[in-house]
């Protein structure tokens, strides 16, 4: 079997799909945080598997990451990553001032995991709607660790058949705030091709 390569036009369609997914996710984030969101156009980059982390950020930087497997008609992976300063911004919004205590406490991580869950559900609902594919998020899992360790661990699930991976990345920013994290969608090239075909009506 040879490697399945994504064409440039397919990447464009996938970027648009990510854009729609992210738009929907931003709308649910607005309700969750009670604050307007500013959304950049998602980045789509096709890079060698071993270079993904450095394209996303400083590989050694500690991030908080919520992970969910996407299952259904295709398999994929969603990650919600926050730099520590992003996580502080998010927790300041979500937690009552008297409960607010910075650190990797179970309460803090669960508030962040719930935010990831809300983003993932909305993102996938939109992607399902435009592609007609049934897609379901799994139970979110949370880790606080070095960016490269986290990203590579997820990449191991999809890298076997391909030397390059398409990363669909959206930054979420609240009105008047810097970043409140990034959502990354990753899948095997075969699954991404299927997504494009279905979105374009086969």
């Amino acid at each position: 079997m040879s490697e399945i390569i994504l064409e440039e036009e397919e990447v464009d369609v996938l970027r648009e799909i990510a854009n729609i997914g992210s738009g929907h996710a931003a709308a649910s984030m607005e309700k969750w945080l009670e604050r307007d969101m500013l959304l950049d156009v998602p980045q789509a980059f096709l890079v060698p598997v071993e270079e993904v982390a450095e394209h996303i950020g400083d590989p050694l930087q500690t991030v908080i990451c919520v992970y969910s497997r996407v299952s259904g008609e295709i398999t994929g992976h969603l990650l919600y990553t926050l730099a520590l300063e992003d996580a502080k911004v998010l927790l300041d919004i979500l937690l009552d001032p008297e409960d607010r205590k910075w650190g990797f406490s179970p309460d803090n991580l669960s508030a962040i995991a719930e935010t990831g869950n809300i983003l993932f559900n909305a993102y996938l609902t939109a992607v399902s709607r435009i592609s007609g594919l049934e897609l379901y998020p799994g139970t979110p899992a949370c880790a606080a660790d070095m960016l490269e360790a986290v990203v590579n661990t997820v990449l191991l699930e999809i890298c076997e058949g391909s030397e390059h991976t398409l990363v669909l990345e959206t930054q979420f920013r609240g009105e008047g705030l810097s970043s409140v994290g990034y959502v990354l969608f990753l899948a095997e090239n075969e699954a991404l091709k299927r997504l494009v075909q279905r979105a374009e009506g086969e």
Partner: peptide, 14 residues
């Protein structure tokens, strides 16, 4: 060979 996301998420490749 770590398992970053705990049990029940990713396969235990590590």
């Amino acid at each position: 060979g770590a398992r970053l996301f705990g049990e029940n998420s990713l396969q235990n490749i590590g």
